[in-house]
């Protein structure tokens, strides 16, 4: 069973009360309150206090609360982590993660903050954003650096700059990075989250990119505007045809198991364990997406 969906992770600028007050009404799977790039250096203290007070006061419902803190190489990181852990954050997203050591250093800060604020040890999870060639090459060691890791995410703008290239509609410049990240995440048993799509006027481009990363195996995508949420969710939702097929496969597998068979045929095609697992995952995703799979005719 899929414990948590992260099809869409909506960035919310941390120093903007109008945006911080009710972003959950747009129905993203996660909210990422940002203390990093969207906040000017002179406003880091104010943004940290605003997100702290908002997390303490506002009920964001069942939407996961993530905060993108400032990097480990900044003077803000200590206060960022202490404040957000005390405020009840679910996940700390660390930008510019380069090595496993960065995660271990962050874990140290989180452990101290959990203790200081009376939260259970290990409760706060981590997502690492990979933004450079070195980070991508270290993706697996980052992904397994702590059991707190729930996912690794590609952050493409800094990455393509480091690669001395630019982003293209086809995304060829990101292909290797995406492939390595999703493979590292799968090997580590955590999620892979894709980068933002920044052109808000190009829905077709967003859909194309979302289909590509879903096909590559990603779990979801960071988004920068509520209008992108239903488009991404639409791409990740199983089709009625996929659900119908998956239901038949799971039913056939159950029947074969009851008869003591390991391999079976359905419509003349061999069905074995990986295919059954895939079908079960489609049904899990459909259920988690709120689709009523029983209403899809078998």
């Amino acid at each position: 069973m899929i414990a948590k969906l992260r099809r869409s992770m909506l960035f919310v600028p941390g120093n903007n009360p109008a945006l911080v007050k009710d972003p959950h009404i747009y129905g993203p799977d996660s909210l990422i309150f940002d203390l990093e790039d969207s906040v000017a250096p002179t406003e880091k203290d104010a943004a940290r206090l605003l997100v702290f007070c908002a997390l303490k006061a506002i009920d964001y419902g069942r939407v996961e609360k993530v905060v993108r803190v400032n990097g480990m190489d900044t003077t803000w990181i200590g206060d960022d982590v202490a404040a957000m852990v005390a405020a009840g954050v679910d996940v700390i997203r660390l930008p510019k993660t380069e090595r496993a050591e960065d995660i271990r250093a962050l874990v140290g800060l989180i452990e101290a903050a959990e203790k200081a604020s009376g939260r259970s040890a290990g409760e706060v999870r981590i997502m690492a954003a990979l933004e450079s060639p070195l980070a991508v090459l270290n993706a697996y060691e980052i992904a397994v650096a702590s059991p707190r890791l729930v996912g690794i995410a590609l952050s493409a703008e800094d990455f393509v700059t480091s690669m001395k290239t630019t982003r293209s509609p086809e995304g060829v410049e990101l292909f290797e990075a995406r492939g390595r990240i999703v493979m590292a995440a799968r090997a580590a048993g955590i999620m892979a989250i894709d980068t933002v799509f920044t052109d808000l006027s190009d829905d077709e481009g967003l859909l194309r990119e979302a289909r590509l990363i879903k096909q590559m195996g990603f779990d979801g995508k960071s988004v920068i505007n509520p209008s992108q949420i239903p488009l991404v969710h639409g791409v990740f939702a199983p089709t009625p045809e996929e659900i119908r097929k998956s239901r038949r496969i799971v039913a056939a597998a159950a029947e074969a198991e009851a008869r003591g068979l390991g391999v079976m045929a359905l419509d003349g095609k061999m069905i074995d364990k990986p295919i059954v697992e895939r079908a079960a995952r489609v049904l899990d995703l459909a259920r988690a997406s709120g689709m009523k799979i029983e209403e899809v005719e078998a």
């Binding site: 206090l49 605003l50 702290f52 303490k56 206060d79």
Partner: peptide, 25 residues
């Protein structure tokens, strides 16, 4: 502003106004 934003802005202004070298976090 929501109450939480008022609280945040008052806290931020006061902490800035109280700031000095070696001010305890």
């Amino acid at each position: 502003a929501l109450d939480c934003a008022i609280r945040a802005r008052v806290l931020a202004a006061c902490l800035r106004a109280a700031e000095q070298e070696g001010s305890p976090a």
